[in-house]
Amino acid sequence: MDIDLNADLAEGFGPWRMGDDAALLDVLSSANLACGFHAGDPPIMLRTIEQARARGVDIGAHVGFPDRQGFGRRFMQIDPSELTAMVIYQLGALEGMARWAGARMSHMSFHGALGNMVAADHALAATLVRAVAQFNPQLLIISSSSRAIESAAADCGLQVAITFLADRAYDDEGLLVPRSLPNSVIHDQHHVIARVRRMLERQEVVTYSGKPLKMQPRSILLHGDTPGALELAKTVRWEIEAGGGRIVPVSRLLG
């Protein structure tokens, strides 16, 4: 089985670092880079682009709400036209830096609370995915399972790579449960690895309510800002390769 292994990176700000991006890039095949709204700044973005390019890791824009203090995980009521401009702005920032560094932006994803809103709202998904398609019709979208995003992408001729968030709980519809719920974020690495193993072997995850839910992800996502992210990424990679799978950048799976 060929599958992408990716993480959200470039999420520091100024002298503050969030995770070990350089070490993670030795393990990943794709990276979603913060674009300065929920986290990140120009020097961190550029450095991460250059490090990813040197390792042959796919580069994508991870766009979110303008919410550094809340790390983009607080819901914000913003007019869709403003959100559209914010998404374009973030895509443009990373695209410009990637071009300057001789790299290519292959994909994009929605971060945190914005991602949860888009995944559950067909109208908002239609608006923002259309903006992505108008910005660059060749971009792939990496997303957790979402009928709204998948339908909007199909209408715009964009490809979607469904990603399995190994450390996040799912509801019975395949959407991520709110972080406010107990055990919505799974910190036990043994549990995370068991979920990855089940997904690889059975293509299913056990939902928050305890039901098995079928899923066919093309990517596995880890959060680079969580403690132990590097060791977890190494273990997940070993688990995939020990089972005969290959870690392949997302652009080579769908591009």
Rank of each mutant, 00 (worst) to 15 (best):
M1S: 07
I3S: 05
D4I: 09
L9G: 09
A10Q: 07
R17W: 00
D21H: 06
A23E: 15
A23K: 14
L24W: 04
L28H: 10
A34G: 11
C35R: 08
G36I: 08
F37A: 15
H38W: 06
H38V: 13
L46A: 14
L46I: 14
I49G: 10
Q51L: 15
R53W: 06
R55P: 09
V57I: 13
D58M: 02
I59D: 12
H62W: 06
R73M: 07
R73S: 09
F75C: 02
T84R: 15
M86S: 10
Y89R: 10
Q90F: 07
A98W: 03
R99C: 00
R99L: 06
W100V: 14
G102R: 06
M108I: 02
H111K: 06
G112E: 06
G115A: 13
A119V: 05
A123M: 02
A126C: 01
L128Y: 00
A131H: 07
V132C: 13
V132P: 05
F135T: 04
F135Y: 15
N136D: 15
P137E: 06
Q138I: 00
I142N: 11
I142E: 04
S145I: 03
S146I: 02
A154R: 15
D155F: 03
D155V: 11
Q159R: 15
A161Y: 01
L165E: 09
L165N: 12
A166S: 14
R179M: 12
R179S: 04
S180F: 06
P182V: 08
P182W: 08
V185A: 11
H187F: 13
Q189M: 07
A194Q: 12
V196D: 04
M199Y: 00
L200W: 06
L200N: 01
L200Q: 05
E201T: 14
K211I: 01
P212F: 12
L213F: 13
L213D: 02
S219M: 02
G224M: 05
G224W: 02
G224I: 03
P227Y: 08
A229S: 14
V236T: 01
G243N: 01
V250Y: 02
L253R: 03
